[in-house]
Each structure stands twice: as C-alpha cells, then as structure tokens.
C-alpha cells in the first residue's frame, strides 16, 4: 500500500490543474437540481418526503460523471502503459484514484447539499446524522463507481456505459439504503434511528472497497 499516498497526491494535482473539470460537475449538479425544482413546481408536492430521492439521484448522477475521467484519462492519453510498467500494484492505483475521487466528490456533495437547501423548502432536523449518512453512502458509491469507471473507460460508448453498468449494481444496495435512511433522518430520526441503514451502507463500503482492491488488476492489465 506504499504507493497509495503518492498516487493520491498525483491524482489530486491533476484534478487541481484542470480546474475547469470540477466546475463542470458543480454546474451539472446545479442543473439537475434545477430541472427537478422546475418540473416539480407545477405540482406543489411534499418536498420533505421527496427530498431524499432528489438529493441522492442528483449526487449519484453528477458524482458518477465526476469519477469517470480518472480512468478515461489514462485510456486516452496512453499513460496506462506507463502505469502498468511502473512497479506499482494495480490495487494501489485503485485506492489512490478512489481516495482522490472521494475528495472531489465530497466537495461536489457539499455544494449539492447547499444548492439543494437553497432551492427546496426542506428542514434538516438532524444535520449530523445527515452528514454521516452522506459520508457512508458516498464511500460505497465511490468504491464501486471507481471500479466500474475503470471497466467502462475501455469500452466503446464509454460515456453511456458507465451509468448502464453502475446503476443496476447500485440500485438495490447503496441507493435504496441511502435514500431510506436519509428520508427518515429528514423527518427527525437520529443516527441511532437509522442504525440499520447506516450499518448496511458501512457494509457496502467495506465489500465494494475489497472487491475493487482485488479485482482492479484484471481490469487494468494489458
């Protein structure tokens, strides 16, 4: 695992250099939330109930696209062979990229939540619990998202293949648990109240990180 900090540092540097990239994802989040807001404004629904699905859907879709470049970059710029030749185990590369995506996604989520609260008339009775659930859900999401991004970077139509591959895997695992837990938290449940969902999200995080760590070498080999 020795190479992980180095890879993390390099990935973050690349992200910082291309500042336009993260702006595009922030914009994407904003636009997704805006389209929800505009289309729902016609109906005057109960936003407190709809909050969890809207928030997580936005996070998943904008987040998904923000994870993609980290592997597609290698495929496009031909740096993949360099990575393969260097005596760095593939699993270190995976962890480094995953952590870097986590950093980017945290910033993206913070922005998304802020915009969400600005757009929608929603109360947050338990902000601590909300943040905890967001964090837990995001780790699992990024773990499996990174692995799938690594796969889709090699495919034709890679932009559309990422959601095609990722959504079925996430749907009944991270998505349902995160949305269920968040919905309860927004109606007043404390973190103990959603212990079930929190534990599940933590379990997903562990399983997906392990899976990514073990399987990435098969995805990256020449």
């Amino acid at each position: 695992m020795t190479a992980v900090p180095a890879i993390l540092a390099k990935e973050l540097r690349v992200e910082m250099r291309s500042k336009q990239t993260i702006n595009a994802y922030l914009l994407l989040s904003l636009l997704i939330l805006a389209s929800f807001r505009f289309s729902l404004a016609l109906f005057d629904p109960d936003y407190q109930t709809l909050a969890a699905p809207i928030l997580w859907t936005t996070i998943f879709f904008s987040g998904m696209f923000s994870i993609a470049p980290s592997y597609r970059r290698e495929a496009e710029q031909g740096t993949r062979d360099g990575l393969l030749l260097a005596p760095v185990p593939a699993s270190d590369v995976y962890l480094g990229k995953m952590l870097s995506s986590l950093v980017v996604l945290s910033a993206l989520e913070a922005f998304t939540v802020a915009v969400f609260l600005a757009f929608f008339p929603v109360d947050v009775p338990e902000p601590g619990a909300l943040v905890a659930l967001l964090a837990l859900g995001t780790v699992g999401f990024v773990a499996v998202g990174s692995l799938i991004a690594a796969i889709s970077a090699n495919l034709r139509q890679s932009e559309v293949m990422l959601p095609v591959l990722l959504v079925p895997v996430l749907l009944f695992t991270v998505v349902m648990s995160a949305v269920s837990g968040t919905a309860q938290v927004l109606t007043g449940a404390s973190l103990d109240g959603v212990a079930e969902e929190a534990r599940l999200l933590a379990a997903f995080a562990v399983v997906f990180v392990a899976a990514g760590y073990l399987l990435i070498e098969y995805v990256m080999e020449g």
């Binding site: 799938i148 090699n154 495919l155 079925p168 009944f172 599940l200 899976a211 098969y218």
Partner: peptide, 29 residues
Amino acid sequence: NMPGRQRRASLSAVFGIIGVICIPLSFAA
C-alpha cells in the same frame, strides 16, 4: 461494446462478479 476477445472476457468477468455480489447484498439490505 468490447471487441477484443481477451479483454472482453476479463472485463465482463469482473463485472459479472460485481453484479453477483450485489444480489445477496441486496437481499440482506
């Protein structure tokens, strides 16, 4: 969407395993 025989096999094997893992995970969840 993956033309090369070997790569196709590796990539779909990894995805197949991920897909299968999430079924019992979903049941538990």
